[in-house]
């Protein structure tokens, strides 16, 4: 019984490592075949519409609410120490450094990443990808690479929009509703948030998340077994794996970026 369990565990580990290697090779192939997508940029534009523009509403609404919650909770906590004026700095720092990149990427993974997986998986299941290859058109260059670049371009832009909506939400709750002084809200924010240190690092994070989410989504779609269960399983795996990847990468990147403090 124990031997059996150990064997299945070992099998799963080997399988995971094998998939990671395969996914890395897939990533390299995407980069290798990216030339076509840049020569024909409308392919990327079409995919930016499908993944970026279609995620706008959820990103904007979620950003607004997260900012409002931050404003409310931050105020309640800061009030105990008599430093309500630091609310702007608290809201902005949490958003720009952590919540913006992480939440925007998580939302993107479940809104656009899962759709990418399902789309590529179904194209594979209905032999559209084989048909394309037999028409002497490389599916990696024509289908996968444009979606990858669309995701990589969209995620940082969505993150910036998320953070701005969040700051606006925090402002609405903190200044308009509760009545924190407007001047100290903005000035504390500007004093607390450093452009290079906080904003640029946040953008680097969201860029890395964008790469991770789209590679996972496209790989799972491309690798999905060509059946209904295969595609639905791959869609689930996309959301689970990209969420874990985002949080894990966030930890690694944070450790690297903010170690000086």
């Amino acid at each position: 019984m124990i031997v059996e369990n150990l064997r299945s565990l070992g099998h799963r580990i080997v399988n995971t490592v094998w998939r990671i290697g395969y996914a890395s090779r897939f990533f390299m192939l995407i980069l290798l075949y990216s030339g076509t997508s840049f020569r024909r940029f409308h392919l990327i534009i079409k995919e930016i519409f499908a993944s970026g523009v279609m995620s706008l509403i959820i990103i904007l609404v979620a950003g607004l609410f997260v900012g409002m919650v931050l404003g409310l909770q931050g105020y309640e906590t800061l009030k105990r120490y008599g430093s309500e004026s630091a609310l702007g700095s608290l809201v902005a720092l949490s958003l720009v450094r952590e919540l913006g990149p992480v939440l925007a990427a998580l939302l993107f993974a479940s809104r656009a990443g899962s759709a990418m997986t399902a789309e590529i998986g179904l194209m594979k299941a209905t032999e559209q990808i084989s048909a394309m290859a037999l028409m002497a058109i490389n599916p990696m260059a024509r289908l996968v690479a444009p979606r990858f670049w669309a995701g990589v371009i969209s995620v940082p832009l969505l993150t910036a929009l998320f953070s701005v909506m969040g700051v606006f939400g925090g402002y609405m709750v903190g200044v308009v509703l509760i009545g924190v002084d407007q001047g100290s809200f903005w000035s504390q924010m500007q004093a607390g948030v450093d452009f290079r240190y906080d904003i640029v690092n946040g953008m680097i994070k969201s860029f890395v998340f964008g790469v991770a989410v789209t590679v996972i989504a496209l790989f799972e779609g491309y690798d999905a077994p060509p059946t209904a269960e295969g595609v639905s399983g791959a869609t689930t795996r996309t959301v689970v794996q990209s969420s874990l990847a985002i949080l894990f990468l966030d930890f690694i990147l944070t450790a690297f970026m903010f170690q000086g403090e």
Binding site: M123, E127, L134
Partner: peptide, 29 residues
């Protein structure tokens, strides 16, 4: 790939590109 351009293949269920119109499917190649 040069050789494949001289071949055409009809798949079992057609394998039309579902995100394009009929016109764009035929015009694709």
């Amino acid at each position: 790939f040069r050789m494949r351009r001289r071949m055409g293949m009809l798949f079992q269920f057609g394998a039309l590109f579902t995100d394009m119109s009929v016109y764009d499917n035929v015009a694709f190649q």
